[in-house]
Design a binder for these strands. Structure first.
Length: 570
RNA sequence: GCGCCCGUAGCUCAGUUAGGACAGAGCAGCGGUUUCCUAAACCGCGGGCCGCGUGUUCGAGUCACGCCGGGCGCACCA
C-alpha cells in the first residue's frame, strides 16, 4: 500500500483515539505506534490494525470494546482532504475508506474506497523508471564486497549465487538512496597460489613427457591441464623449474576467465582489490602496529595474537604465526580498516557458510579499531546444490568434479540463473534444478514474470497498430477500472516501493522475486478474463492501457533490480 | 563437545527481522478454458499434530529454554 494511504489511515485512527479520550470514553496512556498491516485474508479488508488489542491491557477494557469505541469516533470524523496528492483523488480524511469493521478478537479492518487506489497510476506515469525509488539511505556510502573468489579456479555455482545476491542487493540499496560501491577482493599471494603454480607446473612437465609428481593437495581440475597446454602453445624458453612463472601465468589466465564469466553474468565491480596491494602499501604492518600499541595484540608461544575475546569472540586469534608469516586474518583486518579509511562507514560482506566462524573475529577487529560493530554487516549465504531433475550433481571442488558457473550460464542463460539464485532467502540452502531453469514451461517462474512483461508489450504494439494512443492519466476516467482483477493489480502496484524498502532493510532480495511473481500473476489473471483493446467506447480501453503500462513499468523496474532482462517478445 | 543455518502440504519453499484472526504460494495429481491483444497463460478441486516438549503472553509457525533430526563450521589453512 502506498505510504500516503497508510499514513492517512493511521492519522484517522489517532484522531479517533484522541476524540474518544476527550469525551472520556478512553483513558489516556502511552500510545504505541499505530501499525497497519495488509491482512493475508481478503475478507479481512485492505488494511488492519491490532491497536485495540495492544491498548486493552493498559486500559483495563476488553479489546473488542476498545476497538468499538475507536471505530465509532473514526466513523464520525468528517471527510477532510487534508493532503491532496493529486487533484482528482484527494487522499485524506475518511473519504478513502469505504468500510470499517471490528473483527475477531478486536482487530479493526479497513476497506479502501476505489478512489484511494487510482493515484498510484499517476505516480508511476510520472516517475517511470524511478518508481520505487526512495531516500531511506539518505545518500550514505555503502561498500558491498562479494564473490571475492581467489584466482585458483573457475567460478562455481556458489559464486554465482553470491554474485546474483550481491548485485541485486547493491541495486536495491541504490534504489533506496544509498551510494553503493561494489568491490571484489582476492588473494594473490600465499600458500594457495603457490599450490596453484605447482599444480600447473606438474601438468606442464607431464605434457612434455617428464615424470613429474602432482602435488598432494594440488588442484585437480581439468582447467589446470588446459592452462599447461596454453603455456606449451604460447611460451618459448619456459624455465620449467620456476614455479613462480607458472603461478603468475595461471593467475592471469584464471582472473581473465573469472572476469569474463562475471561480465557474461552481468556483474560489474567498481574496484578490484588485491591482497598484495594491502601488503605493499604497508597497511598490514600499520594496522597491526596500531592494534599492538593499543594493547590488543600480545605475544605467546612465538606467535602474535589478537585479543579478539575482549570484543565478543570466543577466543583470541593468531595474526602472525611463529614462523613470522601473517595469517589470513591480518591482511583482512587491514583491508577492512582500509575500507573505513576510504570513507565507507557501512560495510557489507557476503560470505559462505564455511566462514561463519570468521565473522566474530572480524567484527572484533573493527571494534578494536574504533568502529561500530554494527557498521559491518555480514551476510552468510548458504550453499547451492545442483540438480538435474531428481538427480543431485557432485560438487567437490577438491576432486575437480564440479559444475562451473560458466556451464550453468551456457545451459540455462543469464536470466534464469539470476532469478533462480534469488528465489530463496539467503540463509536457506538452494536447490538449483537445471532442467527446471531450462524448461520453457509453466513451471519456470522466470519466464512467468518475463512473459507478463512481453504480453503487455504485445498489447501496446497492438494498440499502436490500431492507432489507439496511450493517454495521460489526467485525460482518462480511471474510475472505469472497477473489476476485482484491476483493483487487485492496483493494490499490488502500490506496494512496490515498500517491498523494495523492506528488501533493503533486511538485506534480502528474495522478497522482490516473490513480489514480481505476484504482480505477473495478477496481470495474467486479468489478461485472460478481459480485453484491453476492443470492446466499448474506448474509454475503458484507455484506462486499461494506463493500468497495464503501469504494470509493465513496475515489472521492468523490479526485474532491473534483480539483474534480469525484461524482453518485449518471447 | 561448542557455534551458526535449516526442519511448515507428496515435492520445492514463503511467512520468524518488528508475536495477532480459521497457516500461504508454486510445482506435482485430478477436472475444465483458445472464432478474441502470444495457451511460456487462466479457472476449479483436494491436500497440514508449522520436528517434539515446556515456558512467557489476552494471543506463539514467529519469542525463551530444553530435546530430536539434517547441513556447515570449530587451525599458528585460505
Amino acid at each position: 500500500m502506498t505510504r500516503e494511504i497508510k499514513e492517512a489511515v493511521a492519522r484517522l485512527i489517532r484522531e479517533g483515539i484522541d476524540k474518544a479520550r476527550r469525551k472520556g470514553e478512553l483513558v489516556s496512556c502511552d500510545l504505541p505506534d499505530i501499525t497497519l498491516e495488509i491482512p493475508s485474508e481478503r475478507n479481512h479488508g485492505d488494511l488492519a490494525t491490532s491497536i485495540a488489542l495492544r491498548l486493552s491491557s493498559h486500559l483495563n477494557l476488553p479489546p473488542r470494546k476498545v476497538a468499538e469505541v475507536i471505530v465509532k469516533h473514526v466513523k464520525a470524523i468528517s471527510p477532510q482532504p487534508s493532503r491532496p496528492v493529486r487533484d482528482k483523488f484527494p487522499l485524506g480524511g475518511s473519504s478513502i475508506i469505504s468500510q470499517i469493521e471490528v473483527a475477531g478478537p478486536g482487530f479493526i479492518n479497513f476497506f479502501l474506497a476505489r478512489e484511494a487506489l487510482y493515484p498510484v497510476l499517476g505516480d508511476i506515469e510520472e516517475e517511470g523508471a524511478n518508481y520505487g525509488r526512495s531516500n531511506l539511505g539518505k545518500g550514505k556510502k555503502v561498500l558491498i564486497e562479494f564473490v571475492s573468489a581467489n584466482p585458483t579456479g573457475p567460478l562455481t555455482v556458489a559464486h554465482g549465487r553470491h554474485g546474483a545476491v550481491g548485485d541485486a542487493l547493491a541495486n536495491i540499496l541504490q534504489m533506496v538512496g544509498y551510494e553503493v560501491h561494489r568491490e571484489y577482493y582476492y588473494n594473490d599471494v600465499g600458500h594457495q597460489m603457490d599450490i596453484l603454480g605447482k599444480s600447473v607446473q606438474a601438468r606442464y612437465r607431464q605434457l612434455r613427457g617428464e615424470e613429474s609428481p602432482f602435488p598432494e593437495d594440488g588442484y585437480k581440475g581439468n582447467y589446470i591441464t588446459g592452462i599447461a597446454q596454453e603455456i606449451a602453445r604460447e611460451c618459448e624458453n619456459v624455465d620449467r623449474g620456476d614455479s613462480g612463472f607458472f603461478r603468475s601465468f595461471a593467475e592471469e589466465k584464471i582472473l581473465e576467465s573469472i572476469k569474463k564469466d562475471l561480465e557474461d553474468f552481468g556483474l560489474k565491480f567498481d574496484d578490484w582489490i588485491k591482497e598484495k596491494d594491502i601488503y605493499e602499501s604497508g597497511q598490514v604492518k600499520k594496522t597491526l602496529e596500531r592494534l599492538r600499541k593499543e594493547g590488543h595484540i600480545y605475544q605467546k608461544e612465538g606467535a602474535l595474537w589478537f585479543r579478539s575475546s575482549h570484543f565478543g569472540d570466543e577466543k583470541d586469534r593468531v595474526v602472525e604465526k611463529s614462523d613470522g608469516q601473517p595469517t589470513y586474518l591480518a591482511p583482512d583486518i587491514a583491508y577492512h580498516q582500509n575500507k573505513y579509511e576510504r570513507g565507507f562507514h557501512c560495510l557489507i560482506d557476503i560470505l559462505g557458510p564455511d566462514h561463519h566462524g570468521y565473522v566474530e573475529r572480524l567484527k572484533a577487529a573493527i571494534e578494536a579499531l574504533g568502529h561500530e560493530k554494527d557498521s559491518l554487516k555480514v551476510i552468510i549465504l548458504q550453499l547451492v546444490s545442483l540438480y538435474r531433475g531428481k538427480e543431485k550433481l557432485p560438487m567437490s571442488t577438491r576432486a575437480g568434479e564440479f559444475i562451473a558457473l560458466r556451464q550453468v550460464l551456457d545451459e540455462v542463460g543469464k536470466d534464469a540463473a539470476r532469478f533462480f539464485f534469488l528465489m530463496r532467502t539467503t540463509n536457506s540452502h538452494l536447490n538449483f534444478d537445471l532442467d527446471l531453469a531450462k524448461s520453457q514451461s509453466t513451471e519456470n517462474p522466470v519466464y512467468y514474470v518475463q512473459y507478463a512483461h512481453a504480453r503487455i508489450c504485445s498489447i501496446l504494439d497492438f494498440a499502436a497498430k490500431r492507432g489507439v494512443e496511450v493517454k495521460k492519466v489526467e485525460e482518462v476516467d480511471l474510475s472505469l477500472l472497477k473489476e476485482k482483477e484491476e483493483l487487485e493489480m492496483l493494490k499490488t502496484l502500490a506496494q512496490f516501493p515498500e517491498v523494495v524498502e523492506s528488501c533493503a532493510r533486511a538485506l534480502e532480495p528474495q522478497g522482490l522475486s516473490s513480489y514480481l511473481q505476484e504482480l505477473a500473476g495478477g496481470l495474467h489473471n486479468f489478461y485472460t478474463k478481459f480485453r484491453v483493446i476492443g470492446p466499448g467506447d474506448g474509454n475503458l480501453g484507455s484506462a486499461r492501457l494506463i493500468l497495464v503500462k503501469a504494470v509493465r513499468t513496475t515489472l521492468r523496474n523490479g526485474l532491473r533490480l534483480l539483474g534480469v532482462s525484461a524482453p518485449e517478445k518471447m
